[in-house]
């Protein structure tokens, strides 16, 4: 109870800081009116939530990476590669299903660790490293799939994307689970505190004795792992593996994080905002579809939303800087 007042104030300044909650509410109301209530029908809400899951999961990993002033462009490729390998194991090699799931997760994590190692130990720039990794994984997936789609995944595999538990889809449960883990990790764990310090001032964090190298490998490994989780959900939903899985998802994940208040300058933001950011993107997509807006202009609208989010982040930072002086 000691600093009740200051906590109260910081709650509101945080709220206005990312503004994501306000945008969220405005969009929900606006779309409800425009679509004459279609957008808030329970069936549509479940639909929105399902679409949120994969990008949302990727956005959680992306948030960790961006807090550390990095970027992970390889998530889509990692998802494609792990689904290709998983599908081949399941259909052609006859590996037990549960083992295949495990293999998929291990592949994602391993690729992430290679990213992390290159960036933290070899000091390669994150942007180019992960872009190269995107090409490596995408190309490998393409080769493994031989340019075709692999069908015939075992029935049980549909559990992630099509099953449900207490009326809520399993995929949504998975998103909730990882959001919670991400939130707790960032807010209450030592690793989380160190991550914010690394993003806020890398040199000072190093001098304070933080194990920057190990932490950095870990965050890229987490991002890779979560890419594989996303791959599980997608393959389960469509019950096949194809190379286009995850195409362009890295940009959606980055956009979600930025809209959700994760600053590209590092050291700021969290997973709740990022997942809310995903929600906003999906809702806009969904609303525009319901309104039968041309898909071409939809892309432009999405771009405008991202543009605005980054602009407001930069303007807010400059304002804060001016206030300090």
């Amino acid at each position: 109870m000691k600093f009740r007042d200051s906590k109260f104030i910081s709650f509101f300044s945080n709220l206005s800081k990312n503004g994501v909650v306000i945008i969220f509410i405005v969009i929900v109301i606006a779309l409800a009116f425009l679509t004459k209530g279609k957008s808030i029908k329970p069936s549509n809400i479940v639909n929105i939530m399902l679409q949120t899951t994969t990008i949302g999961i990727l956005a959680i990993g992306m948030t960790l990476v961006i807090i550390d002033r990095g970027i992970d462009l390889s998530v889509g490729g990692v998802a494609a590669l792990s689904s290709a390998v998983g599908a081949i194991c399941m259909t052609k090699l006859g590996v037990p299903w549960i083992l295949c799931v495990l293999i998929m997760l291990v592949i994602g994590t391993l690729v992430g660790m290679i990213n992390g190692f290159s960036i933290s130990v070899l000091k390669m720039p994150a942007f180019i490293t992960t872009m190269a990794m995107l090409k490596i994984t995408q190309g490998s997936a393409h080769y493994l799939l031989g340019g075709t789609t692999i069908f015939g995944l075992p029935e049980i595999h549909s559990v992630f994307g099509q099953g449900s538990f207490i009326g809520i889809p399993v995929a949504v449960w998975i998103l909730i689970f990882f959001t919670l883990i991400g939130f707790l990790l960032l807010k209450y764990s030592r690793f989380g505190r160190e991550l914010y310090a690394m993003g806020g001032n890398p040199k000072a964090a190093w001098i304070a004795g933080i194990n920057v190298t190990q932490n950095r490998i870990l965050i890229y490994a987490i991002s890779g792992f979560l890419s594989a989780v996303a791959a599980l959900i997608i393959t389960s939903r469509i019950m096949c593996a194809q190379v286009t899985i995850g195409d362009g998802s890295e940009l959606d994940a980055i956009a979600s994080a930025v809209i959700g208040g994760v600053s590209m300058a590092g050291g700021e933001g969290g997973v709740l905002g990022a997942v809310a950011g995903t929600f906003i993107i999906v809702m806009i997509n969904n609303g525009l579809n319901l309104l039968a807006v041309s898909p071409y202009i939809q892309t432009a609208i999405k771009g405008t939303v991202i543009f605005t989010a980054i602009a407001s982040d930069v303007i807010r930072r400059r304002k804060e800087l001016r206030l300090k002086q």
Binding site: Y196, A197, G199, G200, N201, K203, A204, A205, I207, G267, E268
Partner: peptide, 9 residues
């Protein structure tokens, strides 16, 4: 400034 404090915290 460069090596001591973490300004955002």
């Amino acid at each position: 400034k460069e090596e001591g404090i973490i300004p955002g915290m």
